[in-house]
Design a protein around this nucleic acid. Structure first.
Lengths: 255, 255
DNA sequence: CCCTCTCAAAGTGCATACAGTGTTCTGCAC
DNA sequence: GTGCAGAACACTGTATGCACTTTGAGAGGG
């Protein structure tokens, strides 16, 4: 809703060019009054910069825990400090960096418990949205979910990990979108973005992967049956699986 | 300028500013490594400015739908455009303003359906957190909830509206905090802040007020019984009440 | 060897300057 | 009076400059 363009992009694995666009977010059912509805709109420098840095952080090209040198980074991006600093404010609100007076931006380093915290939040949102979706999602949407789901399963069977991951993420997003609640959906996106660098850790264990797929099949089924409680339960288990995976993999306590 | 709610809110929130909110953003409950742990820290200008503008928006002193003139506002706050612009980036991320290229910041005007959307999100978070709370909240926390609750009911009986409102908000926050999920709690705070200007509309109807209190009593009871499902249901009804109230009050479609 | 004190270099926070873009006002044709 | 062109104005976006804080290396004392 609203027309905030601060969209979040899913470069996911390509690591490059996230120019597949935010326009999707522009759906504006709002009364065409004032400035509420915004046209296509060129991107500003600070937006562009925010995107670039976001990617750098998420892809691990900037070291968690380290400071950002504004002059240096600005030079390397070819912009002055002003738009850079503005971009950092945005990233700070998204929780990707911490801003400390006279020290500037520090790449946020997530403790394990914080990561778990965020995962749980993500899971909770998904559960909630799933419940809502059972009530108000259209049959078309559910069909679309099913289609994406089937595609994903096919990718699993072909052991096509990359495509699988992508569709998996998309599926979770789809579920959330079906709640028709933009506020929750956007929050989900933000957190998911924050977690991108750890989201799929450990999914390379065949057993876990297989289990995850099984759950997904159940999820799709429950959704089609519009069975709130069942869906809630499966998602609970799905989250548990993710958490276990995370805990197994990360002996160290920071990510 | 402002909406008809303006006077209402001046009374309501007593200029108690969101200090805690700003501070929360700096928090890092992490192992004391690197820069993760940040000392008390003086506030920066842009933080201060963000806070001021946030208050101005929430209290209706800035007109929804109108643009912010950076020079003018900067002058009136006694700061240059740089920290002001940085503050605006923060507020944009919080969803209080929209940023449009070559137009700057526009105070966000919420369509009724967007407001409902946010309310629902808030309700969903509360439900979710309540479920979590039933499992992991300590007895002390629940006792504290109960105490606050009782205090609030007393304020109701004394028809002490202002105190009631304050405790009500606090109670909802408490519930969310009991989930021990910082991510969700922070999100809840952000959205609640956005809604501050409309949150308690219509609560002056005695009938509705009475009903709300009844529900609160049930909520406290369910929580003490750690009865997830019951709590979920009551909260559902509580949300419905809020939504009805909102719909009743706002004939016009924007807030 | 270690401590700490000093001071220069580096880096951030904020203000100002400049360039480009929207907006408004004026004057003129009709 | 209405509509339009164009110039003056207003305002935003970005770059640069200055002041103050932090950092860190080296000197001097213990």
């Amino acid at each position: 809703m609203g027309s905030r363009l601060q969209a979040f992009f899913f470069a996911l694995d390509t690591g490059e060019n996230n120019f597949e666009f935010a326009v999707t977010l522009l759906r504006g059912p709002t009364a065409a009054v004032d400035y509420q509805e915004v046209p296509i709109q060129q991107r500003t420098l600070h937006d562009e910069v925010a995107m670039r840095i976001r990617d750098m952080i998420v892809e691990g090209r900037l070291d968690p825990g380290s400071r950002i040198n504004e002059v240096q980074l600005g030079k390397s991006l070819g912009v002055s400090r002003t738009p850079l600093r503005e971009a950092l404010k945005t990233l700070a609100s998204e929780g990707l960096v911490d801003l400390v007076r006279n020290k500037g931006a520090i790449i946020r380093k997530f403790a394990l418990d914080e990561t778990i915290d965020m995962m749980r939040a993500l899971g909770a949102i998904e559960q909630t949205c799933a419940r809502m979706a059972c009530e108000i999602a259209s049959d078309e949407e559910i069909a679309r979910f099913r289609a994406t789901h089937d595609e994903m399963v096919a990718d699993y069977e072909a052991r096509n990990r990359l495509a699988y991951f992508k569709l998996n993420q998309q599926l979770h997003q789809l579920l959330v979108d079906m709640s028709h609640n933009e506020t929750l959906a956007r929050f989900h996106r933000t957190v998911q973005e924050r977690l991108r660098r750890v989201r799929f850790i450990g999914n390379d264990k065949p057993k876990i992967w297989t289990e995850a797929v099984k759950q997904h099949i159940e999820i799709a089924a429950a959704l089609e049956a519009r069975d709130k409680e069942r869906l809630h339960l499966v998602l609970e288990r799905h989250l548990d699986l993710t958490l276990n995976r995370l805990q197994d993999v990360s002996q160290e306590s920071e990510l």
